[in-house]
Amino acid sequence: MALIEISHLSFGYRRAPVIEDLDLSIEGEGVTALLGPNGSGKTTLLKLLLGLLAPTAGRIRIGGDDIGDLTQKELACRLAYVPQVHKETFGYSVFDVVLMGRMPRTSFFARYGDADRGAAREALDKLSIAHLADRPYTEISGGERQMTLIARALAQGADIFVMDEPTNGLDYGNQLRLLDRIGRLAAEGYTFIYTTHHPDHALAVADRVVMMKDGRVVREGAPQAVLTTQGLAELYNLSDRLCTCFGAPSRTPLRAAL
């Protein structure tokens, strides 16, 4: 049984379909990168997966359970969302932000207990950001915020992490550190699904690449097999010349370079 199984999924705003009859199954563990041009429905797919949008047709199963049958809370215990770091909020301490991850694990009328605080500390330790615990979330750097959000997802106790363009807004060094972190957590058995606009990031850590265009999956498979010059040219409507001149990854896996 696949960990995530999406069958005949459709979704549209008003009359414009965003996702049409999409089938995808993710076998579990490892990193899946979603690649596709703007407006191809990547983010919508993530939102459907997180239960933030309700599909107009089709179903999504996680570990065999239809997510339509799970409450938002049950879903949050299996699937953690690591958002982009752009939201402005109050200057909660990093520890308090991580503690928010315990929300789905505590009952409505309960308060956070020692177990919750312990889980939050453990998550901070695991990402080596325990020294930030008391700092206001609004005053740490973008890379540190992204780590805080990952720590929150760890504290949440889910084993599938959903990330929407996680490297967005990070400098080059922090992008690499983040990818490295994703790779290391994946090696521990966590499953990652993330969207990206950088084929080289997919090459770097993904075990599997899903290329989306116009709300459908056009190609999927191992990064080395899918992320070819021809594949990218087709995905982004590039002429061969553009594709080989700029940006297309060479065939050497980036992972080795990291």
Binding site: S128, A130, E144
Partner: peptide
Amino acid sequence: SPQGLREAPPPEVRRPRSRS
């Protein structure tokens, strides 16, 4: 701490004796 993330844990990992 220098911008960005630290690779290794910092020398003295203080327990977060949080305000929390």
